[in-house]
Amino acid sequence: MKLHVLPIVIMLAGCASMLPTSRQDVKNNWEDFEQAKHAYDRIVPYQTDMATVRELGFDPAVTPNVQILNHSQVVRAVLPSPLQERAAIPPGILDCMKAQDGCVGYFMEPSRIDRKRVGNFMLDFLNFKRDTLTTGWKFGALIVVVNDKVVFKQWSGRPRIEETELRSNPLGPLQGLGEGLRPTP
């Protein structure tokens, strides 16, 4: 190998660290899914008040991206159809329906998502092949409150997110060139 080619090969070998990364972090008190679930599990319907809910990290006034639901939105979110038998409706939802405007639902999705481009720097840089690895977690909590007392709770989530997206462009940097040349109507 010629000596003047060696520095270029060494430089390109370290280029994988130059690939873009991103992090989506919905501000929350938890480092991982298990911590969020543990805090959620400490909420007990008909025992836990809003002060305790706030202490556990589910504070609608402080936590960003909290969706506040009125009583009809809570019912639609929990019940698959409005034609259910009364006995099949959870007691907390019945109490929410009775309370009408005195019922408020809080839905929040704390998460931590990391996106990292991996693979060959030159293929990525020239837009031939982009390989993105997404990792993280997402926790969803619905907390229904009537008169400052939790009456219902429901959770969902993804404890371990691991996805790979591979985008291949055979023409590389020329791939979208034709679309840019079309006249706009």
Rank of each mutant, 00 (worst) to 15 (best):
H4T: 12
V5L: 07
M11H: 09
L12K: 15
L12H: 15
A13H: 13
A13N: 07
A13Q: 13
G14M: 08
S17L: 15
M18Q: 12
P20N: 08
P20K: 04
P20G: 07
T21N: 08
T21D: 06
T21G: 10
D25C: 01
K27G: 07
N28V: 03
N28W: 00
W30I: 03
W30E: 08
Q35P: 00
H38Q: 15
A39P: 00
V44A: 06
Q47D: 10
M50D: 00
A51C: 12
T52R: 14
V53N: 01
F58R: 02
D59P: 00
D59G: 03
A61W: 07
A61H: 10
N65E: 07
V66L: 05
V74S: 00
L83H: 09
A88E: 00
I89E: 00
P90E: 03
C96F: 00
A99I: 03
Q100L: 09
C103V: 05
V104I: 09
Y106N: 01
Y106T: 03
M108P: 00
E109V: 11
E109M: 15
P110V: 12
P110C: 13
S111A: 15
R112V: 13
R112I: 11
I113H: 04
I113K: 04
V118S: 01
V118P: 00
D124M: 11
F128D: 10
T132I: 04
G136P: 06
W137Q: 01
W137F: 01
K138M: 08
K138C: 10
G140E: 04
I143Y: 04
D148I: 04
V151I: 10
Q154C: 01
W155E: 12
R158Y: 13
E162K: 14
E162Y: 11
T164S: 15
E165P: 02
E165D: 15
R167Q: 15
P170E: 09
P170M: 15
P170G: 14
G176E: 05
L177K: 06
G178N: 11
G180N: 09
G180S: 09
P183F: 05
T184S: 09
T184C: 10
